[in-house]
Design a protein around this nucleic acid. Sequence first.
DNA 1: TCGGTGGTTTACGTTAACGTCAGGTTACGC
DNA 2: GCGTAACCTGACGTTAACGTAAACCACCGA
Lengths: 164, 164
Amino acid sequence: MSGNLADAVRDGPPGAPGTLAAEARLLSIGAAAAVLGISERALRYYQQLGLVTPCARTPGGMRRYSEEDLERVTRIRELQSLLGLNLDEIAVVLRHEDRVAEIRQSFRDERTGAPERAELLSEALELNENLRATVEAKRAALDKFLADIDARAEKIRAALEALP
Amino acid sequence: MSGNLADAVRDGPPGAPGTLAAEARLLSIGAAAAVLGISERALRYYQQLGLVTPCARTPGGMRRYSEEDLERVTRIRELQSLLGLNLDEIAVVLRHEDRVAEIRQSFRDERTGAPERAELLSEALELNENLRATVEAKRAALDKFLADIDARAEKIRAALEALP
DNA sequence: TCGGTGGTTTACGTTAACGTCAGGTTACGC
DNA sequence: GCGTAACCTGACGTTAACGTAAACCACCGA
């Protein structure tokens, strides 16, 4: 092992005058992959599907990932492992979440009128509720599953107490 | 559509003297697939991997599935969709559950001594607890996920109330 | 300035979980 | 007894989500 995670993440001098703090913390694809614990190939693949695009590139064309980019990837993995969604379905979820973020922006905008604001909020609420329903369904099923397991455990424990 | 589900499941006269009720209710692979809502190919594939073997065959070699067989397949699908396990991992879980069933048998056996019974019960308990841990972990993650969604919804609702 | 490490695109390879097709066999209603 | 629908066993095809290799290019420390 020539380079470890700490080496990969540690960037050039962050004090270079003129560069914003956020800019200094952009990660290369190797560092990003190391931090996230996934492969570089996966990151490129997600980008190919339009799921995450690194916020910047170096003049030479190398990908630079921001903290926000990493969070997005984390989100992808969560939606994969927790909800069992495939990448196409995840793309939809992410688009919805992007839309919510967009709504948040419009909301901050001074020019947005009150009735339009209400409209935006209820749209955001609906998008949110949409995902919630999916998650809630899964949770309910899991809870039942867990209850079954616990019931079995209880029977075994009862038998154990009846023994000695 | 020439044959529907009801046709497929409805078997020959169940009153044929000499045949047990359970025997009369064995399903062909087509009927089983229809009831379960999966493909025949999937059933054959699961068998190939040693996950479910139909309890019987006709003299001519055609598969016959019992109610218990169907439950086992349902279990497989549950482990797939809820826990996101692959079929190899599911094979392990099923082997553990089979072992628990075996333990239950030994337990009913008169010849099993008291110390051995205790041993069997704690083995069953451990196997059960094993699966429980997996499920519980998933549930915790899902709960957190759901909490995040609810928090967002709350923020949106608060903004909505602050409007009019 | 230059060597080595790391990154880029392009393209073909891999694995799990089936889908589908071919060619022959069995079950069942009439 | 007979036709046909359902089933059998291979065997090859497919799709998602990457893995891997090749050939070329960027960056950075000495």
